[in-house]
Simulated scan of single mutants.
Amino acid sequence: MPILNYTTSIAVEKTTSEIQGKLARAGAQAVMTEYDDEQVLCALSFRILCNGIMVSFRLPAQIDRIYMLLQRDDKAPRKLKTRDQAARVAWRIIKDWIEAQLAIVEAEQAEMVEVFLPYAQNPATGKTLFEQLSNDQFALLDYKSH
């Protein structure tokens, strides 16, 4: 089965602009873009105020992983098996995911910090909560050790 949005032709900049608008409307106070060595947008960071504390989040686009998936997909035409296409696909998937998360927040099923929590950044290290937990082999979540 082909990866979601694999045929998109929407530019990365348009998609990330849409994402920035959605995050701003949801209360983000700042949004920053990051680029890789090839000047491809590879992450969005944003911050929101939560109980008087400014919390930062970093949403990476795993462009190289998408590129590898496109390469392996026999159903994807060769013209769609490029790194540029992988970037377009990665950001469309992230946009769709953010829309779903914000719908949960709008329906008062969760708070904004709650839905983005794995991507919360430690201000001292810059690592996301998920990266920290992963580096510690998820020891904090191991019920056997508590």
Rank of each mutant, 00 (worst) to 15 (best):
residue 78 R to I: 11
residue 56 S to V: 05
residue 131 E to S: 15
residue 93 I to R: 09
residue 46 F to C: 05
residue 45 S to G: 02
residue 24 A to M: 05
residue 6 Y to D: 02
residue 73 D to R: 12
residue 78 R to G: 09
residue 23 L to V: 03
residue 99 E to R: 08
residue 3 I to M: 08
residue 90 A to F: 05
residue 16 T to D: 03
residue 119 Y to L: 13
residue 57 F to W: 05
residue 65 R to N: 14
residue 127 K to P: 06
residue 144 K to C: 05
residue 47 R to S: 08
residue 81 K to E: 11
residue 105 V to P: 04
residue 107 A to L: 06
residue 55 V to S: 12
residue 87 A to K: 07
residue 107 A to R: 12
residue 96 D to I: 10
residue 91 W to A: 03
residue 20 Q to P: 03
residue 133 L to R: 14
residue 29 Q to H: 10
residue 63 I to M: 02
residue 70 L to C: 01
residue 51 N to K: 15
residue 86 A to Y: 08
residue 107 A to Q: 11
residue 115 V to C: 05
residue 57 F to G: 04
residue 44 L to P: 01
residue 108 E to V: 13
residue 34 E to M: 08
residue 50 C to M: 02
residue 70 L to Y: 05
residue 38 E to M: 06
residue 111 E to K: 06
residue 139 A to C: 08
residue 84 D to I: 04
residue 136 D to S: 13
residue 16 T to C: 15
residue 105 V to N: 00
residue 63 I to S: 03
residue 17 S to R: 11
residue 55 V to W: 10
residue 54 M to A: 07
residue 87 A to W: 04
residue 128 T to W: 06
residue 57 F to M: 06
residue 24 A to Y: 02
residue 64 D to Q: 13
residue 62 Q to C: 10
residue 81 K to G: 13
residue 146 H to W: 12
residue 39 Q to K: 09
residue 21 G to N: 07
residue 124 A to D: 15
residue 124 A to E: 13
residue 92 R to Q: 14
residue 101 Q to L: 00
residue 114 E to W: 09
residue 29 Q to V: 07
residue 24 A to K: 07
residue 10 I to Y: 01
residue 46 F to S: 09
residue 135 N to K: 13
residue 48 I to G: 07
residue 58 R to H: 05
residue 71 Q to P: 04
residue 47 R to Y: 02
residue 52 G to V: 09
residue 59 L to I: 08
residue 114 E to Q: 14
residue 87 A to F: 02
residue 22 K to N: 01
residue 103 A to Q: 14
residue 45 S to H: 01
residue 116 F to Q: 02
residue 63 I to H: 06
residue 82 T to K: 10
residue 68 M to D: 12
residue 4 L to G: 09
residue 85 Q to W: 00
residue 37 D to S: 15
residue 111 E to F: 03
residue 6 Y to N: 03
residue 140 L to Y: 09
residue 66 I to T: 13
residue 119 Y to T: 09
residue 123 P to Y: 07
residue 69 L to M: 12
residue 75 K to E: 15
residue 21 G to V: 02
residue 103 A to F: 04
